[in-house]
Design a protein around this nucleic acid. Structure first.
Lengths: 339, 339
DNA sequence: TCAATGACTGAAAGCGCTTTCACGGTTTTG
DNA sequence: CAAAACCGTGAAAGCGCTTTCAGTCATTGA
């Protein structure tokens, strides 16, 4: 049916071994022979069977991208497209392919596939939360793995992450710079590391400015718009009211903005508002949201580099690579009165 | 190194054939033997080698998702996450895995991978535009393919699409219903089918209402915010001004909104504004955008069903499946003065 | 001039699985 | 009670490729 290497060999009048050598650019093949084989390959439009090759060389040239939670629902932004674009960039360069392992709402979880040996050479985990399945799988899996974001419980896993802490600190300092004192925080979930780190950055900034962190000004959200709305309502009931709010995600900032409006106040005149993530929506809001941008595509790109480097030449002595990427303050209109 | 089926067979004291039969739930295996084999499998935590299996059965149980253009950049919305979630839903159900084939800005294009025979059982194309590579690849590829959105030049390819035309018609009728007469359109690119269809739906609505389509009220954009801004500025210069604008994408509607604001006018008081897509931003805008929602996840889900059905039992006589999914009008605040 | 080296090639042994075939032993059927 | 059907099993032949090994020539060095 499909044309095989044997057929190529037959047509070129050589053995299969030689054809294989030509295909893989081995040296020590007679140029004339080489040309005959290429000729046959072109004539027949032959494509090597990747599966057979994988079996023989015991590598698949495929890595997995594991997205355990349906977080695409959580972040209503192009986080994953960008991340994957970054990973793809590196993969394309090195002739690797990407397998997508996605948990869906059916409860089916992706580690099932991964287990099938020989399928994946390595994997990138893009999980925000350390759920039970993830940990369990990490425990027993044998392929190299790198994670987007640190996995607390497994310090041995290489990761690349964004400097959430410093990003949060920067934006809160920006708030302080504009004269705000009573600065509240709507944090992310504390079981997500990004949530915790951004909170810590908030504390850093306050402490550095000699402002004490007041528990009643800190409310835990879950990154969603709704949780931002609810948290902001609680904050508005405080007396005195906070004069600025740092929301640990742009979606929560949006919810907060709506709550402010609903109570007849305005941003930034009555309360300043800062977000985190720089989703497209942030620029589109009125007022445009001051926020922190993360280099998402770069995150993916570097994670893939780490993984592929490891696969292509496994290090002699084991060493855990860690990369922290800087974040960037994006100043728009929501933190201070316009001149 | 890794444990193989032979090892299982040895441990269970049977032949490899029998172990294979147990693994694949064949009937006609002595229950006692069956149990011994499972026992060995559990003990050793054996995982069959997927590559070897694929080679033997000549199927990989993997489908490709082909995203030729870097359109994730174009649509700043969670279109692909949702689409892929839908596809994943179906794939998980039927034990298939998804390979992601993404073109990146490097110019590397994804069809390279696909060609490697035996790698993919089938593919879903999620391409908005019919570029040269796509067509060329379709020409020579032999695996079953289904497309998200119709491919004009290849009527033989099964597809699932959203009823762009009817969606556009509905929303323009909504505009008419609220008393608007001079209704402009900012269309998508005419070389993209969704762009054309939405334009046709706009014409349908006008014609049905006895309003003639006026060329100066129709401006071609490219779905981006910027193009919406530019188009709206042109529209505002018209005399008399249109009293309503249908933008063929929410991003263009956003651009249009900014243009309206910039010229000191307001939506919907001075001009009504309607979008298309219902990206998260649409609900977050002020005023919240009236738009058309497409069942994106469902789109992916059904595309995958079509493909997998075809793979699992190939139809005797060839027939091209076509599915058109309905769109939904989402009425918010941008088309009429609030009561 | 002869041994040693090196270039080129094919046979054959895998990679880890599935599946056909054949065979002995049990049941069923006419 | 013989023939037919069926069950349960292992040997062996693939699936389409890579790679080792050994062998043939043609070169080179001493």
């Amino acid at each position: 049916m499909n044309i095989t290497l044997d057929e190529i060999a037959r047509r070129a009048g050589v053995s299969r071994s030689t054809s294989s050598r030509v295909l893989n650019h081995h040296p020590h093949v007679n140029p004339a022979v080489r040309e005959r084989v290429w000729q046959a390959i072109r004539e027949t439009n032959y494509q090597p069977n990747h599966t057979a090759r994988s079996l023989a060389i015991r590598r698949s040239q495929v890595i997995g991208i594991i997205i355990p939670q349906p977080i695409h629902t959580l972040f209503a932004d192009p986080y994953f497209p960008l991340l994957i674009e970054g990973i793809a960039h590196t993969c394309n360069e090195r002739q690797f392919a990407m397998m997508l392992e996605l948990a869906t709402s059916t409860g089916n979880h992706p580690y099932l596939h991964i287990g099938r040996r020989g399928f994946l050479d390595g994997a990138i985990i893009a999980s925000a939360v350390e759920d039970q399945f993830l940990l369990q799988w990490l425990q027993q899996e044998t392929i190299p793995v790198v994670s987007i974001g640190r996995i607390i419980s497994h310090p041995g896993i290489p990761y690349v992450d964004v400097d959430n802490r410093h990003g949060a600190r920067m934006i809160v300092e920006h708030l302080i710079h504009w004269g705000h004192h009573r600065i509240a925080a709507i944090t992310g979930p504390m079981n997500i590391i990004a949530g915790r780190e951004r909170y810590v950055g908030y504390c850093d900034a306050l402490t550095a400015a000699g402002i004490s962190v007041q528990p009643e000004l800190v409310i835990e959200g879950n990154f969603s718009e709704e949780s931002g709305y609810i948290a902001m309502n609680m904050l508005l009931r405080l007396d005195p009211r906070p004069d600025a709010v740092f929301a640990a995600s742009d979606m929560m900032a949006l919810g907060a903005l709506k709550a402010v409006r609903a109570s007849g106040l305005e941003v930034p005149d009555d309360v300043a508002l800062a977000g985190f993530d720089d989703i497209p929506l942030a620029a589109a809001m009125t007022p445009a949201l001051t926020t922190v941008r993360q280099p998402i595509a770069k995150l993916g790109q570097i994670a893939a580099c780490l993984l592929l480097d490891h696969l292509l030449n496994p290090p002699a002595e084991p060493s855990v690579q860690r990369v922290i990427l800087p974040t960037e303050l994006v100043i728009r209109e929501s933190c201070h009165k316009q001149p």
